[in-house]
């Protein structure tokens, strides 16, 4: 059983329209790398030019914020990762 990565609406264009993608890994970082292997366009959606998670990306594991050490956060089979995007409009 793998981890489920829930994809934000604005990123589904990079995952063939899929809202949730199974991924394997022991950490959030592993799972995101695994996601990017299959959906390479997610790379520029998530990482900045220096290879860091973009400021506007938020990661939640099992509906709880994983900030600030998102990528190192350990996950277990069956866990849910949500990738969301900071909203700035008002």
């Amino acid at each position: 059983m793998s981890v489920t990565v829930n994809i934000h609406k604005t990123h589904r264009q990079f995952t063939a329209g899929l809202e949730a993608v199974p991924a394997d890994g022991e950490t959030v970082g592993d799972c995101l790398s695994n996601l990017i292997e299959r959906y390479p366009q997610m790379k520029t959606a998530l990482w900045d030019a220096k290879g860091r998670l973009k400021n506007q990306i938020e990661i939640y594991v099992n509906m709880e914020s994983a900030y600030p050490d998102e990528l190192g956060k350990r996950v277990n089979p069956g866990d849910q990762i949500h990738i969301t995007v900071m909203l700035a409009g008002g």
């Binding site: 998670l53 400021n55 506007q56 900030y67 900071m86 909203l87 700035a88 409009g89 008002g90």
Partner: peptide
């Protein structure tokens, strides 16, 4: 904050609950 059909809300009680910066590492576009 809002964007399209999506919106969000969070209340910050100083000294008691997470603040807006507890969520984000810095400036964004």
């Amino acid at each position: 904050a809002v964007h399209g059909f999506e919106g969000r809300a969070l209340t910050v009680i100083p000294g008691r609950s997470a603040c807006l910066r507890c969520l984000h590492r810095g400036e964004a576009p």
